[in-house]
Amino acid sequence: MDTVIDNHAPTAAPAPWGRVRRSRYLADRVLKIACTLFTLLGAFVLGWILLMLLYEGIGGLSPAVFTETTPGPGTQGGGIANAIVGSLVLTTLGIVVATPIGVLAGTYLAEYGKGSVLATVIRFVNDILLAAPSILIGLFVYILMVQPMGGYSGWAGGVALAIIAIPVIVRSTEDMLRLVPGSLREAGAALGAPMSKVIVKISWKAARAGMVTGVILATARIAGETAPLLFTALNNTFWFSPTLMGGVSNLPVTIYQFALAPYENWRELAWAGALIITMSILALSVVARLILRKDRVR
């Protein structure tokens, strides 16, 4: 439709107005070209970053990357196995803590609270937390957990990541539940189902795909977070303790430390890690979109 209307008058119409028409035509042209160029620029930067990661990272990818632990200063070889596993553990911990809280809070906003003052305030606060600087969440968890517990720990890292994930899940859960038609709920209530059953069996079921998408997007968001881990899980060049006390090695902080290091093998590992983490996150984001789209089509 746009395209039909877009091929409009300036070129086709007769020109009794002379210069006026010309300047209108020019402004239109400039707008169209500029907007197209800006969009190309955005795509170009994404492509450039991905190509950089492939170019720098693929050479460093070897089996050792996935089997050996991070090397100490000045030692040769090594891998980032402990950092990869550590990141998986911390991200899982974060998402396991965040999902029930986020889903229930989103449910409160969409099903119980709705337009009440409390719900409005919580919605407002949640939107602010959604964009709040992640480094401040790291500081908060440092004071909350690291200081009282007497040291860095994976638990603190997991909680910091959970705090970042919760607003994402709350927002997506609420948005998805709001899309469920009220008549479905009323039908359930008319059959005598109590509120909790209507929510669990009807609303959640209808909004399932969207809610799963929200959780996946939250996972993608926290998997690459560096700033909140700096003061909570810190890092570690060895396998971390099974109790998750002490520093827990993780990919983002390892990349941060290794990328700026003077050792050649550290930098190679940083690039390999950067490639792995970015590709995983982009894959998660794309999968989340596909799930939602498939649901919409159906």
């Binding site: 969009t39 955005g42 795509a43 930067v45 994404l46 450039w48 970053i49 950089m52 990661l53 720098e56 993608a220 968001r221 998997a223 690459g224 977070e225 560096t226 700033a227 983002p252 990349i255 941060y256 990328a259 940083a270 690039w271 950067a274 983490i277 970015t278 996150i281 982009l282 984001s285 794309v286 979109r289």
Partner: peptide, 24 residues
């Protein structure tokens, strides 16, 4: 597709932008 590409720019971790900025 174009929307997805632009939105994926938001998914790239901050530290990757840092490395791209510093080294490239």
């Amino acid at each position: 597709p174009v929307s997805t590409v632009i939105e994926l720019l938001a998914a790239v971790p901050s530290i990757i932008y840092g490395m791209w900025g510093l080294f490239v």
